[in-house]
């Protein structure tokens, strides 16, 4: 366990040295801030899209939904370097010839990026503070919304880590992860709408955004918990197998 945490700590520290991580973090927060408290000139026809608008009921529900959608792009960009960079620079050689198991490497990297993601998610708490000042937010929505975001984030980061284990090119890893995540989110709502029975049911079940929506409404949906945990566990398992397979190819 100690080695897993050592790898996680190194990975987490790496994010704070990386300009890209700051850019992704800043963009993520900017988009959230724009939706949360738009500059007055921007509030035009679609007032409902924004949250903190005068004479309108403010709810964090839509903010969580948007953060979830943003993660389809943000998670792959955060995770793309995790293993790809090791392959590219060659540090994988020193890493894998140290007495660490493949699982320790993968889990350490996963915990490292999860740490950075939690820090990023933590900084969105400032919106919550503003909500408490200017409005009366629903505690249930807040707690469940953040729980949903943590579960969704873990699942998406696991997908990104898996994509990073496939190639030594970071951009390819990011593209692969975006494709997989789009499958589990954007692709599934039109599929649910247009496919016939029983495929539309299956499509609705595979849509991560549906599960996030129920959290954002303040509901605790055990199916959603199972879905996100299964996605996380499944893709972590696949990542470990990918790293292992390097020894057999």
């Amino acid at each position: 366990m100690g080695k897993t945490f050592s790898i996680a700590r190194r990975e987490l520290a790496g994010y704070f040295y990386s300009p890209l991580a700051y850019v992704i973090g800043a963009l993520f927060l900017c988009v959230c801030a724009f939706k949360f408290a738009p500059p007055p000139g921007f509030i035009s026809g679609s007032r409902e899209w924004f949250i903190l608008v005068p004479h309108q009921q403010a709810s964090l529900r839509t903010l969580f939904e948007m953060m979830g959608a943003a993660m389809v792009v943000a998670a792959p960009l955060l995770t793309m370097r995790l293993l790809s960079e090791e392959f590219h620079v060659g540090t994988i050689e020193t890493l894998m010839t140290a007495p660490v198991t493949d699982a320790q490497v993968v889990l350490g990297k996963f915990l490292g990026v999860l740490g950075f993601y939690l820090a990023l998610l933590g900084s969105t708490l400032m919106f919550l503070v503003l909500m408490f000042i200017f409005a009366r937010p629903d505690i249930g929505v807040v707690v469940m919304g953040y729980l949903g975001m943590i579960l969704l984030g873990a699942a998406f980061l696991a997908v990104g880590l898996f994509a990073s284990s496939l190639t030594r090119h970071q951009l390819l890893a990011a593209a692969a992860a975006i494709v997989i995540l789009a499958f589990f989110s954007l692709l599934m709502s039109p599929a649910a709408a247009h496919l016939g029975e029983p495929w539309n049911q299956a499509a609705a079940r595979l849509n991560a955004m549906n599960y996030l929506k129920s959290f954002a409404r303040g509901l605790f949906d055990s199916r959603a918990v199972v879905f996100f945990l299964a996605l996380t566990g499944g893709f972590l398992f696949l990542s470990i197998k990918m790293v292992e397979s390097r020894r057999w190819r």
Binding site: R10, G14, V89, G90, T94
Partner: peptide, 8 residues
């Protein structure tokens, strides 16, 4: 070629 983590 001693691969190292450049940022550390």
């Amino acid at each position: 070629n001693v691969p190292l983590y450049e940022e550390m």
